[in-house]
Amino acid sequence: MMNSKVLPNKYALVTLALVAFACSLTSANDPSPLQDFCVAIDNHVSAVFVNEKFCKDPKLVIADDFFRSVNILGNTSNKVGLNVTAVTVEQLPGLNTLDISLAHIDFAPHGLNPPHTHPRSTEFLIVIEGTLHVGFVTSNADGNRLFTKVLNKRDVFVFPICFIHFQLNVGNTKAVAFAGLSNQNPGVITIANTIFGSNPPINQDVLTKAFQVDKNVVNYLQHQF
């Protein structure tokens, strides 16, 4: 007969508490859907509210609720040579509650997707055309380490959630990439725009001390954004 030991009550309670806590974290981070789908709709009549959107009556859902074409050439004639065509729940109602979204990214020659972060999403990037220099920076606690890679056609790269990251077209021709995001509404915070283009502007004394530059430099940058 095998020997068995029973944990003292206090240890059993701690073990059970830890298991329950782990399960609660799992549930909080990755909730199970309670319906087949929840196509977002603005009209709240006879609709259910889920994930900040009203659900369309399932009997009225059609294939176009799950469809959107991104077969377009984005206009990259701007300062950074970039065009991002987002496909979030705002553009594709069928994404509601599915925790995914997409972006079609066009780069002009030497175009840049400036340093930015997605507060609610990890990003998975695949290059369709051209060559991109990409990278992200880790947190202060990790020493702000920079991870970079040059990507060619069909290469992929992952940017962890919340980390500041960028993509630069290092070729003399246009580049195209698709980004998959782990949230139906990932959000985006472009660092330069946020810091130097806030409304109203951030106090220049704050920025001169933070960046250790002359106030004229801060004033110039704020006027750019």
Rank of each mutant, 00 (worst) to 15 (best):
I100L: 14
K153M: 11
L221W: 00
V218W: 00
L112P: 14
N219F: 02
A28D: 07
F136T: 10
C55A: 01
V39H: 06
T208R: 05
L92R: 10
A177D: 08
N219R: 04
E90A: 06
E52F: 12
N152F: 15
P8L: 09
D214I: 08
L18Y: 09
N29R: 14
A108Y: 07
N3P: 07
D106S: 11
V170M: 08
I72F: 10
E90Q: 11
M2F: 04
M1Y: 13
V176M: 03
K79M: 04
T15K: 14
S182G: 15
L7M: 12
A103S: 10
V213K: 00
S182L: 12
N172M: 12
A141Q: 11
L146T: 13
F157S: 00
I105S: 03
T122Q: 03
A175N: 05
V45E: 11
K56F: 02
V218P: 09
A17N: 02
E129Y: 11
N78A: 05
N113T: 06
S101K: 05
Q91G: 02
N169R: 03
V134E: 01
S4C: 13
V70D: 11
H165W: 01
T131H: 01
V48R: 05
D142W: 13
V39C: 05
V19R: 12
L95W: 03
A177M: 07
Q184K: 13
P115E: 11
V127P: 09
